[in-house]
Write a protein that binds this DNA or RNA. Structure first.
Lengths: 323, 323
DNA sequence: TTGTATGCGTTATCAT
DNA sequence: ATGATAACGCATACAA
């Protein structure tokens, strides 16, 4: 329970000047004798430098803000893991905003006050307000999932994903297809990009499209409405959770369709049957985002960086016949 | 993209002293004229105080550290939500430790450097090293799930939970019971407390107990080993994930047992059948933890606080006959 | 090698 | 009501 000790304290106890202690701490030149004196004091009292004072003085802040819109999403959690894995020298100031624009704006203010040296946003929905707040922020910003020219960004190749899933869907020669997605203005990448390839490939098929929410319960209820009146043999959801909602609706209405989802989550292998899904490696994405930020901070490029990440289709039981 | 502006800048532009600006900002007495002058400058340049300098000066730090051992757990995420909901004035410095003691120790050091004014630990496993590091930390610490007399703590009433589940299990009059848990030294509350009531109630029944891990895959594999050689009609897992692992093993081995889990997670209603589970309200727990910390910080009680939280059994399809 | 002095941005004390 | 000044803990340019 020792009180926090400062450089001045050490200096006094060792009968040296503060600057000598500072030099000792930063690997400057100190005589063997004073080095030993200071050494024992530092370890005896378990001295820890005050990061606040350091940052204030040096004006480089080894703190980066991370804004996380939702934690009930495997993708976001995996990206966080990636960030942590790649991080070697920073402290993350993580703020959860629960998809509230107001909270996100407040978070940006807060992080600005903390003078973080960078900002990583795992969001997929940048409103005008947020864009303005971000641009007024004089630090590098890395965002994810949204192709905003104003910021450095890491994107999922949702267009390609849609093409691949579309081709795959065709190969299943379905009779009647149900598509679950969200309004495109809510999330362009997910609501639009992901499905363009699918629409294109299934242009000549019997396709029903409904809009729903990100969570399982709502998706199930919405799916239930159409599935209780129609029988589908192929269901494609814009996210795994939506697809699982539909899967439950399918079980409830006793129809045995095939199911395809998007996104990597452990839910895919939690449900029965395991879900065929187009997966991104969000862990790697997180690493990439951190390294991008670090790179930008060091090299200060004039152009905004734009990185695109591919995913892959993983086939599981839900698109097979025998279950 | 305005550069960050300081009190000194404002003072210069308004032709007043720094102290006047400071007084203005903190609601001190300033003449109407200077007030207006400063007003426009502040809003024009969108002045934001430097929280670092403030904290350094005031020596009260509105930052609290939050150590989260795992994010792939609904309980932890819900507690985080609760913390956020109850928080009104602090900035959370969230550190994910991924259940690594080394990372947790490093996190404690880091938070100490940041001079946080409190520490909230959502852990369930305090090793000696960690206990020592925590006690050397001169700020209030609130932990969860572990009955450590050295710290303020919020506990789940796992003992009572075990009793209730035990009684309920008896009422199902099972012939052969499988229990999945973890070694008690790994997590006393979960590994021991939760099951004492169950053991007691089922003392005269045919019970098999196996140890497994927290994740679904391992639990499934471990369960598969015993379930491929025996048929059970009741399975109780120490967590929902374990129980789901066993559920999958049950499906794979074509046995229709009843299943009971512990812990509140959306997985309960994701799997088919929905899982009967003993649930805690971790969102409320999170709120409670924050309020406890706040209370302790303000009133500095001499005794360590100890709060106990009850849960309840929620019956779902997995303990019914007709599925 | 060591010490003195100054500044980072803020608040607080004490004159004026 | 206002301003000069010191202090928080640290790092550094410069002098000794």
């Amino acid at each position: 329970m020792e009180k926090k000790i400062t450089i001045a304290d050490i200096a006094r106890m060792a009968n040296v000047a503060k600057s000598t202690v500072s030099r000792y701490l930063n690997g400057g030149s100190v005589s063997e004798k004073t080095r030993r004196k200071i050494d024992t004091i530092v370890s005896d009292y378990n001295y820890q430098p005050n990061a606040l004072a350091q940052n204030l003085k040096l004006k480089i802040n080894h703190t980066v803000g991370v804004i996380v819109p939702r934690l009930d999403s495997t993708a976001q959690v995996e990206m966080l893991r990636g960030l942590d894995a790649a991080n070697d020298e920073d402290t993350f100031l993580i703020v959860n905003t629960y998809q509230s624009v107001a909270r996100e704006l407040a978070a940006i203010e807060k992080l600005r006050n903390q003078h973080v040296s960078g900002l990583i946003i795992l969001t997929a929905n940048i409103t005008d307000d947020i864009r303005d707040a971000l641009k007024a922020f004089d630090v590098p910003v890395v965002i994810q999932g949204q192709d905003e020219g104003d910021f450095h960004r890491v994107l999922m190749n949702d267009r390609q994903a849609g093409d691949i899933v579309g081709q795959y869907a065709m190969s299943l020669t379905p009779k009647k297809v149900l598509l679950l997605t969200i309004p495109e203005q809510q999330d362009w990448s997910i609501g639009h990009e992901r499905f363009t390839g699918v629409y294109h490939a299934l242009a000549d098929y019997d396709v029903t499209t409904i809009h729903t929410k990100f969570n399982i319960d709502e998706a199930r209820n919405d799916a239930l409405r159409v599935m209780s009146e129609n029988t589908f043999d192929l269901v494609i959801g814009a996210t795994d959770r939506m697809t699982i909602g539909a899967l439950q609706a399918g079980i409830a209405t006793h129809q045995s369709a095939k199911y395809i989802g998007f996104g990597k989550s452990d839910l895919s292998t939690t449900v029965t049957p395991h879900l065929t899904s187009f997966e991104y490696d969000f862990y790697e994405t997180g690493k990439l985002m951190y390294n991008l930020l670090k790179n930008v901070r060091e090299n200060n490029p004039s152009e905004k960086q734009r990185l695109v990440f591919d995913g892959q289709l993983v086939e599981r039981e839900s698109t097979q016949n025998f279950y």
